[in-house]
């Protein structure tokens, strides 16, 4: 049975992993390569590494960091931030990333999704999206509007319509970030996660708000997500990947076990 993926997320500023609440009050958590290696050995299923200031600083993603992560982990990982065009994507993939993630760039130039899927394969192209609740149902039938730049700018696009457009352009996976839940550790925004998961035929990843294993179970069972991103609950040391998986397995969620070799 296909297992539900647990994906630690590393937000990197100046080569250091940081964690903030709703993108503010960031604190230093450690070296991204060391943390990636540690979570790999602890049994995570995949990793995401965001160079979160690359775009604002108008520089490409830190390729050396991508290379070093690729050298220490033997699982897929996605990278995002500072990917402005196909050439940037190509460099990140050749450095060893399995997937490249686009967000604001795709809203501005949706053709990057189709071009990337054609050039590298749909499975490489991840769309990150930042929906916020918007009660104007005439403009936003799903009840959610897409925002960009860390939830700062509204786009006028309906979240579900945008997910479907990205799917038709060949995106391989969609990460649904929720601003209202981000960093709060009070659970994922299940509503919009489920609306999108049910509206597309590509895997959907729940992101933002994980605080305990029950939240992940909700993301899978009620949010219909195929994978879930975890950050604070892991970075703080409050939970280990083993414990998260143990609790999920006990609740009947299929998870990958680390029985690496036979006796």
């Amino acid at each position: 049975m296909l297992t539900r993926r647990i994906i630690p997320c590393l937000d990197v500023i100046n080569r250091r992993v940081t964690k903030g609440v709703k993108f503010q009050n960031n604190v230093d958590l450690g070296d991204p390569v060391e943390m990636a290696e540690r979570y790999y050995h602890a049994g995570c299923d995949e990793l995401v590494v965001y160079d979160i200031t690359a775009s604002a600083e108008r520089r490409p993603i830190d390729i050396q960091m991508v290379r070093e992560v690729a050298r220490v982990v033997r699982i897929p990982f996605a990278v995002g931030g500072g990917l402005a065009n196909l050439e940037d994507m190509s460099r990140a993939l050749l450095a060893g990333a399995e997937k490249v993630s686009v967000n604001s760039l795709a809203v501005l130039t949706p053709g990057i999704i189709s071009d990337g899927a054609r050039a590298f394969g749909a499975q490489c192209i991840v769309l990150g999206m930042d929906p916020v609740a918007n009660p104007d149902r005439e403009r936003f039938p799903s009840g959610y509007e897409v925002t960009t730049r860390g939830f700062r700018e509204r786009t006028g696009r309906d979240a579900v319509a945008w997910a479907q457009e990205a799917e038709s352009r060949g995106v391989g996976e969609i990460v649904v970030n929720s601003v209202d839940a981000d960093g709060t550790r009070r659970g994922f925004q299940l509503d919009i996660t489920r609306l999108i998961a049910d509206a597309v035929r590509v895997p959907v990843v729940a992101s933002g708000g994980a605080g305990c294993p029950r939240h992940l179970r909700e993301a899978f069972e009620d949010g219909h997500a195929d994978a879930a991103i975890v950050a604070g609950m892991l970075h703080s040391g409050e939970y280990t990947i083993a414990r998260i998986k143990q609790e999920l397995a006990a609740a009947g969620v299929p998870v990958r076990r680390m029985h690496a070799t036979a006796e």
Binding site: L2, R201, D226, R256
Partner: peptide, 13 residues
């Protein structure tokens, strides 16, 4: 089952 997303992506036994 529409919950089975294609591609088959992830860890399986």
């Amino acid at each position: 089952d529409p919950r089975d997303k294609v591609p088959h992506m992830g860890w399986n036994q």
